[in-house]
């Protein structure tokens, strides 16, 4: 699924990475616990999270994730947004809940990341 499709399915506001919408998203990993993401999310995954702190962006950066969807209308911290823009990491915002986001992405064919263990 292309990132622009994610934007349209979830009615996202694009906070960072509006020139990267052709990006192909391989799979999705949803969590608020960044250690879970670091332990189990494969590279290239879309991160769906309710965590708005800068650690959410650092996690995506170190784990080579493709993009981030911030759920439930939470605005990212100023540092988080600045860092996402600096690292050219797409950061999307939706008012939908975590459950609604996962459900819609699944209905549109995006698969969950397979846990590595």
């Amino acid at each position: 699924m292309q990132l622009r499709h994610v934007v349209s399915v979830l009615t996202c506001e694009i906070l960072s990475g509006d020139d990267l919408l052709d990006l192909d998203i391989a799979c999705c990993f949803a969590a608020d616990l960044m250690s879970d993401v670091l332990a189990s999310a494969p590279n290239g995954a879309l991160l769906v999270t309710g965590l708005a702190s800068s650690q959410m962006v650092h996690t995506a950066e170190v784990a080579d994730l493709a993009a981030i969807v911030l759920v439930a209308g939470k605005r990212p911290e100023v540092e988080a947004l600045a860092f996402a823009r600096q690292r050219k990491l797409p950061l999307l915002l939706t008012g939908l809940s975590m459950f609604e986001v996962c459900s819609l992405l699944s209905q549109h064919g995006l698969r969950g990341a397979v846990r590595k263990e």
């Binding site: 616990l33 250690s35 879970d36 993401v37 670091l38 332990a39 965590l51 702190s53 650690q55």
Partner: peptide, 16 residues
């Protein structure tokens, strides 16, 4: 924990 850490996975993640 509100920062997404502190779940007791840090050291095991480093070792893994």
């Amino acid at each position: 924990r509100a920062r997404g850490f502190g779940a007791g996975l840090g050291l095991p993640n480093i070792q893994r």
